[in-house]
């Protein structure tokens, strides 16, 4: 189990969090259809580091961006996001 450093609550057990999607797959409201399609349906899915959106669902309920290595689970960053940060 990972320990996720919530920017609002500090380090908390992973069981309080839910993974949403990768940061680069948020579909901008005005995206042309090709771009919307690519963001909805494809992922880089790297065997390495990616930026992911997680939510502290059973805690402060805020969204955040977790930078995580997908083989080692090492978390190299966690920052808060608000509506203004999303496209």
């Amino acid at each position: 189990m990972m320990r996720i450093p919530c920017p609002h609550c500090g380090p908390r057990a992973q069981s309080e969090f839910i993974y949403e999607r990768t940061l680069d797959s948020v579909v901008p409201l005005n995206a042309p259809s090709q771009e919307a399609m690519a963001k909805l349906f494809t992922r880089n899915n790297p065997r390495g580091v990616d930026d992911e959106i997680w939510r502290h669902t059973y805690g402060c309920r805020a969204w955040m961006v977790l930078t995580r290595h997908r083989v080692t689970n090492e978390i190299s960053g966690c920052r808060a996001i608000g509506p203004e940060a999303l496209p």
């Binding site: 189990m1 992973q14 993974y19 997680w54």
Partner: peptide
């Protein structure tokens, strides 16, 4: 385990 991973090891939760 409902989040992306290539780890080949699971989460006790």
């Amino acid at each position: 385990d409902n989040w992306p991973s290539y780890a080949q090891r699971g989460n006790p939760m």
